[in-house]
Write a protein that binds this DNA or RNA. Structure first.
Length: 431
RNA sequence: UCCUCGAUAGCUCAGCGGUAGAGCAUCCGGCUGUUAACCGGAGGGUCGUAGGUUCGAAUCCUACUCGGGGAGCCA
């Protein structure tokens, strides 16, 4: 021994003396024995101090420890069947960095408002740690899947001159003398990038200045937006189901400790394998009408509609070919049926709603120009976008994957405020 | 923006017209295997704010503030 170990690796050190750095998550003691729950970010271990074995000085020292006190601990790793990780630490030396007083988050229940006010401390708790760990693994899986499928990462701008889709409210700011807005989507820029690099993806934040107050909405969230030149609607769906099933299997094989900490039913995740079922918008409308929803062809789906559809399946489902009237201006109409678009939303199971939205993009210059005029978009502001159809236009398609909704679904969380470290919510900018 | 629910000890809540309560946390004491440890004791409150009704309001009424859930928007 001599250098500090990480708690997660301690099962490899049975019988050895190790030293660890960490915080006291909890302490239980009787007159002759003290149990310390020690965490270091990599995991948890129980430190045991028996008065007769450890000596009076160490015992008294350990007795002063409080929740979230910071410590360096030396001890012998022992196998113990009563431990969840199979090992315990018989503490032989203790060095206190700080005794913490009045840590606000106690090992009891707390309300949402209190926890959100203390988000900077809440992320230390085992469930929040597990969520952030899984978020990181999901990001890693997304990158490795896309990188292995010939995609190149391209970063679109965050400060933009105007709206990309024109439907949602944007955060306004000044760019010296000009007006500027925080991006709500990098998609149009990714279309330009796809014409330069073939297959591209962006990974960055998106901002929506909507007064949304639901468990599925964040003001600031992270999105992955792949875009592919020479790709069809079918190609687009194949990449999406390949990506999502890869991500889920990566989490299942790399995050078993975290999924267990969250109490996630992994049998539901194991069913998430491509191909995913596909239904058309028309079929979805018929299904909803047959189940006594009051909805007509041409209406968009609300959250209850999406949930009813998704509940029919044990894996994500694609709903494709929506009426062009309820979708974005750039979506390509189905040549055999121009009233519907070559688009699809992927609805996650268990009522988590839309996690992916994508489409084939209009590649015909005349048609795109017509759409600009119908939607009263500025041809001047978007001259660069129209240029993409002037200089070597090709069929292309892409999609946007909402990171927090995906993490919420895989972790089985109630709310998207938990899969992001410091959520920006309506009326909440602190901490 | 609209609908709906809520605000009482540091935290989670009970009390719903008649002297402000419990559990946890904190402090003191006890306990050799605890797992949200347990047992005994102590301190801790202008009942969100402002008005009103009443002999009397945490409790009933009105407005406001702050927060939860949902709708719309979407990832």
């Amino acid at each position: 021994m001599s250098y500090a170990q990480v708690i997660a690796t301690l099962p490899d050190y049975i019988g050895k003396t190790v030293s660890i750095n960490g915080w006291i998550a909890n302490k239980r003691s009787s007159g002759k024995i003290i149990f310390l729950q020690i965490r270091d970010g990599s995991g948890f271990i129980q430190g045991v101090i028996v008065r007769d074995e450890a000596g009076e000085e160490l015992f008294q020292n350990a007795e002063t420890l409080t929740q979230e006190s910071s410590v360096r601990v030396q001890g012998i790793v022992r196998k113990d069947e009563r431990s969840k990780t199979g090992v315990e630490l018989s503490v032989t030396a203790l060095s206190v960095l700080q005794i913490t007083h009045d840590y606000p988050i106690t090992p009891k229940e707390h309300g949402v408002e209190f926890l959100m006010d203390h988000r900077h401390l809440w992320i230390r708790s085992s469930k929040q740690r597990a969520i952030l760990k899984i978020r990181s693994e999901i990001i890693k899986a997304i990158r490795s899947f896309l990188d292995d499928h010939d995609f190149t990462q391209v970063d679109p701008p965050i400060l933009t001159p105007s709206s990309c889709e024109g439907t949602t409210n944007l955060f306004h700011t000044k760019y010296f003398e000009e007006d500027a807005y925080l991006t709500q989507s990098g998609q149009l820029y990714m279309e330009a990038a796809a014409m330069a690099l073939g297959r591209v993806y962006s990974f960055g934040p998106a901002f929506r200045a909507e007064r949304s107050k639901t468990r599925r909405h964040l003001i600031e969230f992270w999105m992955i937006e792949p875009e592919m030149a020479f790709a069809s609607h079918e190609d687009n769906l194949a990449v999406q189901e390949g990506l999502i099933s890869y991500v889920v299997s990566h989490v299942l094989s790399n995050c078993s400790v975290e999924l267990a900490a969250l109490g996630r039913d992994t049998s539901k995740l194991e069913k998430v394998q491509a191909p995913f079922p596909r239904i058309t918008y028309d079929e979805a409308i018929s299904f909803l009408q047959a189940n006594s929803f009051e909805i007509n062809w041409g209406d968009d789906f609300g959250a209850p509609h999406e949930t009813a559809i998704a509940k029919q399946y044990d894996r994500p489902v694609f709903v494709e070919k929506y009426p062009v009237g309820i979708k974005a201006f750039y979506m390509k109409p189905d040549p055999s049926r121009p009233e519907v678009a070559l688009c699809a939303d992927m609805l996650a199971p268990e009522g988590y709603g839309e996690i992916v939205g994508g489409s084939a993009r209009i590649d015909d210059p005349e048609l795109l120009l017509n759409r600009f005029r119908e939607h009263q978009l500025s041809e001047e502001d978007y001259a660069w976008y129209l240029d993409l159809r002037k200089y070597g236009t090709v069929p292309h398609a892409g999609f946007g994957l909402g990171l927090e909704r995906t993490v919420a679904w895989i972790c089985g969380l109630e709310h998207v405020r938990e899969p992001i470290p410091f959520p920006r919510l309506l009326y909440r900018l602190y901490p």
